[in-house]
Design a protein around this nucleic acid. Structure first.
Lengths: 140, 140
DNA sequence: TCAAATACGGATAAATTTATCCGTATTGCT
DNA sequence: AGCAATACGGATAAATTTATCCGTATTTGA
C-alpha cells in the first residue's frame, strides 16, 4: 500500500470530510450503494469507467473510514455485498443535495467544463467586461 | 498547462459537480471567499498549507468554471480581489452543510482517518464481528 | 540600498491517485 | 475442455495533481 509523505491538514470539518470523500469515485459509489446496488459487479456495471481494481481500493477506504461495511458470503461462486453504515447513511442527504445541484445546473456546468477541456482557446468571446475598478490604496 | 489524456465521465449531476469541485483546496477557497477573505494573500494566510503557486492555479480553475470572478485593481503594489459569482453563491449552502457534518462528526472522523494514516496495524482490535451470513444462492 | 509586501507564472520535481496487466480460485454451461 | 461469471490483490505503469524553485515588477519603509 502507498504510504503518505505529506501530513494532511485536519483543522476544520471541511478538511475532515475531504479526507474521507476525496477520491474520484467515492461519492458515486456511496450513492449507488444507497440506491441498492450492493455487489461489486453491480457497482462496476453502474460505473463502467472505473476498473475493478480501483473500485476495490476505494471500497476498502470507505470501509476503513466506517462509511460502508462488507459482507462476504461463504458461497461459490463468491458473493460480496456492501452496505452503508449508519454513519454512512448520514451522508446521503448531503450527497443527494450535491447531485441535485449538479442536475439543476447541468447545462451550465457542462458548458464551463467543456470550454476548458476541448481546444477552444477562442479569445474575444468573453461576454463579461474585465473589471476596471477605481484605483485605491491598500486598506491596511 | 497540463492536457488531460482521459475523458471525464459527465453522466449525472454528481459527475459534473466533481469536475468543478475536485481539487484539494477548492472547497475551502470558496468558503473563505464567502467569509470575506477576498485577496490572494489573505487566502494564503487562511490556508497556510497551500502554496501561492497552487492557490493561483486553483483560483484560475474556479474562475474558468464561473464560480468566482477576479478583479485586478490597477494600483501599485498590485491588488487583486476575488468574489463569488451568483452561480458560486448557490454552492454555499451545500458547502456549509458539508462543513457542518464534518464538525458534528469531527471526533469520529479524526479517529478513522488517523487509524489508517499512522502506524497502527494493530490487529485483534476490531470490535465488530466479521459478517457470517447464511450461505445462499445467487439470486439472478 | 536592501528587505518586505503585493502579485504572476514557467519549468520541473515530487507525491498521489488511478489504470493496466496479470495470476489465483470455483462453479456451471456449452 | 474451454469460457463466462464471481471475487481479490501484487507489481508496475501512466496520469494527474500538488509542490518547489526561480525569475519578473513596483512601492514603501527602515
Amino acid at each position: 500500500m502507498y504510504e503518505k509523505k505529506t501530513i494532511p491538514s485536519l483543522n476544520c470539518g471541511l478538511d475532515l470530510v475531504g479526507e474521507v470523500l476525496y477520491g474520484k469515485w467515492k461519492i458515486r459509489i456511496l450513492w449507488f450503494i444507497h440506491e441498492g446496488h450492493l455487489r461489486p459487479s453491480e457497482l462496476q456495471r453502474k460505473i463502467p469507467d472505473v476498473t475493478r481494481r480501483v473500485l476495490n481500493v476505494q471500497m476498502k477506504e470507505l470501509e476503513d473510514h466506517e462509511l460502508v461495511t462488507k459482507k462476504i458470503f461463504p458461497v461459490l461462486p463468491p458473493k460480496v455485498e456492501y452496505s452503508l453504515t449508519d454513519f454512512g447513511k448520514t451522508l446521503i442527504p448531503l450527497i443527494s443535495a450535491i447531485g441535485l445541484w449538479g442536475d439543476e445546473n447541468q447545462d451550465r456546468l457542462r458548458r464551463v467544463i467543456l470550454k476548458h477541456t476541448q481546444a477552444s482557446s477562442n479569445e474575444t468571446e468573453n461576454p463579461y467586461d474585465e473589471a476596471l475598478p477605481v484605483p485605491q490604496e491598500l486598506s491596511h
